[in-house]
C-alpha cells in the first residue's frame, strides 16, 4: 500500500532528478538571525552549475559567510530553499548532514590545521574520521600532497611551514575526498600577493578537475585578473551576478 504523504525518500529521489548540472541552487533565500532585525541574507537567488568558479564578494557583513554556512547546513534559511548536489537542505534531517559535508571541501583564512599533527596526518585525518580504510588513505594522501606541491614536506608540522604552505595543506585536506564543491572563505586573506597567486593557481587546477569552487574574497586584484563569475552581496541582497566579472573598485 502506498502512503498518500510522500516519504522522505520520495522527496530525496525527486530532488536528485531535478537538474543534475546545477550543483548549488538558492531560491529566494532569506536568513534572519534571532538577535538581529536586518536579514543577513535577503531574498537571494543563485544558481551555480557543475564546474563553475565563482567569486563571492561584498563588504564585511554582507552575508558571504552566512551563504556558505547555509550550504554546509550549519544554519537553516528563514525562508526559501537551498539545494546542493541535488539534496534539498531545508528538510534534511540531522543525521544526513555528515553525508552532505563529505561532498563539500572547506578552506578558511586561518587554515585551521591541527598543530600537533604532521602535514600527512592533517590530510589523512579528514579521511580517517569518515571511516575510510587505511589502504585508501595510504594511496590517496600522497597523491593529493603531490598535487599541492608538498610531497617533500609531508612529515613537517604546520608551524614549520610558511603561510602559503599551510594553506596548501588545508586545500589538500579539503580536496582529498574529491568533493563536489570547494568552499573557500577568504583563502588568501592572510597571504602576501605572490603566495596568493600560487594559491589561486592551485584552486584553478582543482576547478579544472571538475570541482565547483566558490571563493569569498576581498582581494580585488585576484578577482580582476581571473575574470570569472562574480556574485556580489550587499547588506544581504544580491546586487550583482556577472559572468567574467571584475571586483569593481570605485564603480
Amino acid at each position: 500500500m502506498r502512503a498518500a504523504v510522500p516519504t522522505a525518500m520520495d522527496r530525496e529521489a525527486r530532488s536528485v532528478t531535478v537538474d543534475s548540472s546545477l550543483v548549488i541552487e538558492l531560491a529566494n533565500v532569506t536568513k534572519i538571525y534571532p538577535a538581529t532585525r536586518r536579514p543577513a541574507l535577503d531574498g537571494v537567488d543563485v544558481e551555480i552549475e557543475k564546474g563553475e568558479f565563482v567569486f563571492l564578494i561584498g563588504p564585511s557583513g554582507s552575508g558571504k559567510t552566512t551563504l556558505m554556512r547555509l550550504l554546509l547546513k550549519e544554519e537553516s534559511p528563514t525562508k526559501g530553499t537551498v539545494t546542493l548536489g541535488g539534496r534539498q537542505l531545508n528538510k534534511m534531517s540531522r543525521w544526513r548532514v555528515p553525508a552532505l559535508r563529505r561532498t563539500i571541501g572547506c578552506v578558511f583564512q586561518d587554515f585551521r590545521l591541527l598543530p600537533n599533527r604532521t602535514v600527512r596526518e592533517n590530510v589523512s585525518f579528514a579521511l580517517e574520521v569518515i571511516g575510510k580504510p587505511r589502504k585508501t588513505i595510504n594511496r590517496v594522501v600522497p597523491e593529493v600532497l603531490e598535487l599541492v606541491g608538498l610531497s617533500g614536506k609531508s612529515s613537517r608540522l604546520p608551524n614549520e611551514l610558511s603561510g602559503g604552505e599551510q594553506q596548501r595543506v588545508a586545500i589538500a585536506r579539503a580536496y582529498v575526498n574529491r568533493p563536489l564543491v570547494l568552499l573557500a572563505d577568504e583563502p588568501t586573506g592572510n597571504l602576501d600577493p605572490e603566495t596568493s597567486q600560487e594559491i589561486m593557481l592551485l584552486l584553478e587546477r582543482i576547478n579544472r578537475s571538475g570541482t565547483t569552487v566558490m571563493m569569498a574574497t576581498h582581494a580585488n586584484e585576484i578577482v580582476d585578473s581571473m575574470r570569472r563569475r562574480v556574485i556580489e552581496l550587499n547588506m544581504g541582497k544580491l546586487v550583482r551576478d556577472q559572468s567574467r566579472g571584475v571586483y569593481g573598485v570605485g564603480r
Binding site: 554546509l72 540531522r94 543525521w95 548532514v97 555528515p98 553525508a99 552532505l100 559535508r101 563529505r102 561532498t103 563539500i104 572547506c106 585551521r112 591541527l114 585525518f125 579528514a126 574520521v129 569518515i130 571511516g131 585536506r173 575526498n177
Partner: peptide, 17 residues
C-alpha cells in the same frame, strides 16, 4: 574543539566525533 570542528566539517558522523 579544533579537532572536533574539523571532524564535523569534513563530514564525520556525530557518533564518530
Amino acid at each position: 574543539r579544533t579537532e572536533t570542528g574539523i571532524m564535523r566539517l569534513v563530514g564525520a558522523s556525530r557518533w564518530y566525533v
